[in-house]
Design a protein around this nucleic acid. Structure first.
Length: 799
DNA sequence: GCTAAGGAGCTACCG
DNA sequence: ACCGGTAGCTCCTTAGCG
């Protein structure tokens, strides 16, 4: 008798046994049991699109010939589908072995009368989820039958079932209690970065969701026992989620390679297998969700500029930077070799495991929601590039409406014009309202039905339902039926609006509030990425006219908005893409907002009302003072990661002084004093060394650069002394004394000392320019900042 | 051969 | 492996000079 199994989907994979596919669903039941459901009832397939004018029956016969000849092809039937919104006839070819699908599609594509094959490039397990309507991190129910076979006896679950019917989705959003685990590891090398071929792992710390901290320390550099103990611990604690930080590209690969060298297994998966690399470069651990929180930091935490574990933990309030000892790469060696310092090394590792657990806790809700929304499994939803988050949602919608999924293609880059940016009025302005169009681009795409499947090529006749014509660029889009983008975007936006409505009635901090808040954030992230997706060359549904028209309509709306403001006598200070900065006169602005909404049918609202705003001559850079006294700094050096902390701090303090002062003179005087004081402190070496480090990203391999620059030279020095640094890493360097170009004086920060520094560089090229950016507006001259400092500084230097 | 100007290369930001 | 628009730094080439 089949029984019912209700489960929450944590992870999935597939196995092919004698060319028979099985989908393995790893779940947690409402009773808290870990279960594995095996579904043998789903076959992979692809479509062969027919050439126009081909005789469907004849082509079908030819394809069936191939099917008959290949025991791994099951059936072929004629179907009606759509492709870019246009009806097409296709043959759905059902096969057996997912691994053979692309090969088989290639063969079928050569059949006379077949134009191309589609959807053979959709991963089998994803195809399964979509066709069954299942979502990771969601509840489902299936009719199942227990499976008690020899091959499952070592699988670490409470029960293994075979799916008899279903699964189907259950409308329930509260996740089960998940067993969480975080880990961090350190390896020892006498010189430079550790290499798994020769250098041992020396400390591994593990923190569980229950608050247990376990640390494994190698004795005499023999890491066999601790790697075993680590695996044993994972098997005994049996976590559902394993958090790490750079675990995808660092920790797991190191452990895996190290285990191989030592002839060890790394049986951390629920089937006893080791970690393995999978799509988007994430590491997969069968039956569990391996989550690398660095991926989250990279994509979803723009506020953290240098995404080290300690910075992310500090930013999220998990563990303040102040008061903790953070080790630089070379410290590991010295601390490990020095008996008296070893406890601090262990503490560092433990702190890191604790940080990772803390970050994991604050990120988990969002990750679960993003996974559930996009349909991408939890273990790689944070790893997948933003574009893929949109794409999987589109693929789901496409399948729902019989729209075939295009293949990725090589395309030529052709730029198009984007958003409109106004020149600001330089100076300090009082009482400025920032009026923002609410999700302008998504709203335009919905309103004008901009979508790859509604686009009408110039030579095509206009349909009876009419078209929307984009201003300036002239692209046409059918008014009906609703396009793919419209459907997906309006679902996202209305879901988000509903959730936000519900949130207003809820107590912040409650479990439901946090869940809904995470959901609404996930919805926002995906909606906001859709325009970018449309213009992305790598997108399956890339269509330049869609992106180009969206931007054109955006420019149209904003320029009309500006015109209207002018007509209504509203003073305009600045504007960028979807916002205008205007003098805040409540009645006028109120009237204006109403008029604008009426004109375009788009929602616009005052986002912020600044007491004061400072603009320089430059676009995209300003600082506003909010009523509660906080500063909103935009674009200026103070918010850029490639300036030293000392420059950023000086600029922040200068802005604060200037914007909060009772009079310009007062602000000016205070600010000048602040700058001089910083310069004095720097010359007296009272500014922390770390505040003088400049971080820049290595965006390509050093030899690929066309010019020599400081951070690349610093990276080369690191490499020469054995330190690993790879594309995408941030290089932290300081500028040391000496002659010649800047790039000749850049040193990795951990290979120099305070005494090596060129303090003059930090004064003239960091502190002064950052301060002057702001103070120039007030007519301050550079000499004022340097006046007196030189001598005083020198005296301090010699005394 | 030297130098100032302007373009190229580069990073990181804004929305 | 998301878009275009933008600022501002350093490097590097080169026109113009002597």
């Amino acid at each position: 008798m089949p029984e019912e199994c209700r489960f929450w989907l944590l992870d999935l994979n597939y196995e092919v046994i004698n060319h028979e596919p099985e989908v393995w669903l790893w779940g947690i039941t409402d009773g808290g049991k870990r279960v594995l459901l095996i579904d043998k009832g789903y076959l992979p397939y692809f479509y062969a699109v027919l050439e126009e004018g081909a005789d469907p029956e004849a082509v079908l016969e030819r394809v069936r010939g191939l099917v008959k000849a290949d025991p791994l092809m099951r059936s072929a039937e004629l179907v009606e589908r759509k492709y870019f919104g246009r009806p097409v006839r296709a043959i759905k070819v059902v096969c057996q072995d997912p691994e053979q699908l692309e090969k088989q599609a290639k063969k079928v594509a050569k059949v006379e009368g077949v134009k191309e094959c589609l959807e053979d490039d959709i991963r089998y397990s994803m195809s399964y989820l979509i066709d069954k309507g299942l979502r990771p991190c969601g509840w489902h129910s299936a009719k199942v039958r227990p499976l008690e076979q020899e091959r499952f006896k070592d699988v670490q679950v409470d029960a293994v079932y075979e799916v008899v019917e279903g699964p189907v989705t259950i409308e329930e959003h509260v996740p089960p209690e998940l067993r969480l685990m975080a880990f961090y590891m350190l390896a020892y090398s006498p010189k430079g970065s550790p290499r798994p071929e020769k250098n041992p792992v020396v400390v591994i710390s593990v923190m569980t969701g229950d608050g247990d901290l376990r640390t494994f320390v190698a004795k005499e550099g023999d890491d066999r026992p601790i790697i075993r103990a680590f695996c044993d611990f994972i098997r005994s604690y049996d976590p559902d989620v394993i958090f790490g930080f750079r675990s995808n590209d660092k920790a797991w690969p190191y452990l895996a390679e190290r285990a191989k060298v030592l002839g060890l297994e790394l049986p951390v998966g629920r089937t006893g297998v080791g970690p393995h690399t999978s799509v988007y470069g994430h590491v997969s651990i069968t039956g569990r969700a391996n989550v690398d929180l660095y991926d989250f930091a990279e994509k979803d935490l723009p506020a953290v500029k240098v995404k080290t574990l300690e910075n992310v933990a500090d930013y999220l309030g998990v563990m303040p930077l102040e008061g903790r000892e953070v080790l630089d790469p070379p410290d590991v060696k010295f601390y490990w070799e020095d008996k008296s310092k070893k406890p601090r090394l262990v503490k560092f590792c433990e702190d890191n495991a604790r940080c990772i657990m803390g970050i994991g806790r604050s990120v988990l809700e969002f990750a679960l929601q993003l996974s559930n929304l996009t349909g991408i499994p939890l273990d790689h939803v944070l790893t997948a590039a933003v574009g893929f988050r949109v794409e999987w949602l589109l693929i789901r919608e496409a399948r729902k409406r019989g729209e075939l999924v295009p293949k990725r293609a090589e395309r030529k880059y052709r730029p198009y014009v984007g958003g409109m940016v106004l020149k600001p009025r330089p100076g300090i302005h009082e009482k400025i309202a920032v009026l923002d169009y609410k999700s302008l681009y998504p709203s335009i795409m919905i309103k004008e039905n901009l979508s790859p499947d509604t686009y009408l090529r110039p030579e095509e006749p206009e349909p009876p339902e009419g078209v929307n014509v984009a201003p300036e660029v002239g692209h046409k889009f059918r008014r009906e039926p609703p396009g793919l983008y419209r459907e997906v975007l309006s679902a996202l936006i209305s879901a988000r609006d509903e959730i936000r409505e519900r949130l207003r009635e809820l107590e912040p901090g409650t479990a439901l509030y946090r869940l809904l808040d995470a959901r609404q954030k996930a919805l926002k992230v995906v909606a906001n990425a859709t325009y970018g997706y449309a213009g992305w060359l790598g997108a399956r549904w890339y269509l330049r006219p869609v992106a180009e028209s969206t931007a054109a309509w955006g420019r149209y709306v904003i320029s009309k908005t500006i015109e209207m403001a002018k007509e209504m006598g509203i003073e305009l200070i600045y504007g960028d893409t979807d916002s205008v900065f205007v003098r805040y006169e409540p009645e006028k602005v109120e009237k204006f907002l109403k008029a604008v909404e009426e004109e375009f049918g788009l929602k616009i609202k005052p986002d912020e009302i600044f007491e004061r705003v400072l603009f320089t001559e430059a676009k995209k850079r300003y600082c506003g003072l909010l009523p509660d006294g906080r500063l909103e700094i935009v674009g200026l050096e103070a918010v850029r990661g490639d300036w030293s902390a000392v420059a950023r701090k000086v600029q922040k303090e200068v802005l604060e002084a200037v914007l909060k002062a009772r009079s310009p003179q007062e602000g000016r005087e205070k600010a000048v004093k602040i700058v001089r004081d910083y310069i004095r402190k720097l010359k007296a070496k009272e500014v922390p060394y770390k505040d003088l480090v400049i971080w820049e990203e290595l965006t390509r391999r050093p030899e690929e650069y066309k010019v020599r620059t400081a951070h690349v030279e610093a990276a080369k020095i690191m490499m020469r002394s054995g330190w690993d640094i790879s594309v995408g890493d941030k290089v932290g360097y300081v500028v040391v004394r000496g002659s010649g170009k800047l790039y000749e004086r850049a040193m990795p920060y951990f290979l120099a000392t305070y005494d090596d520094l060129d303090l003059d560089y930090y004064v003239k090229k960091q502190i002064v320019p950052a301060a002057m950016r702001v103070l120039k507006v007030l007519g301050v001259k550079e000499e004022e900042l340097l006046a007196g400092v030189e001598r005083k500084g020198l005296m301090a230097f010699f005394s």
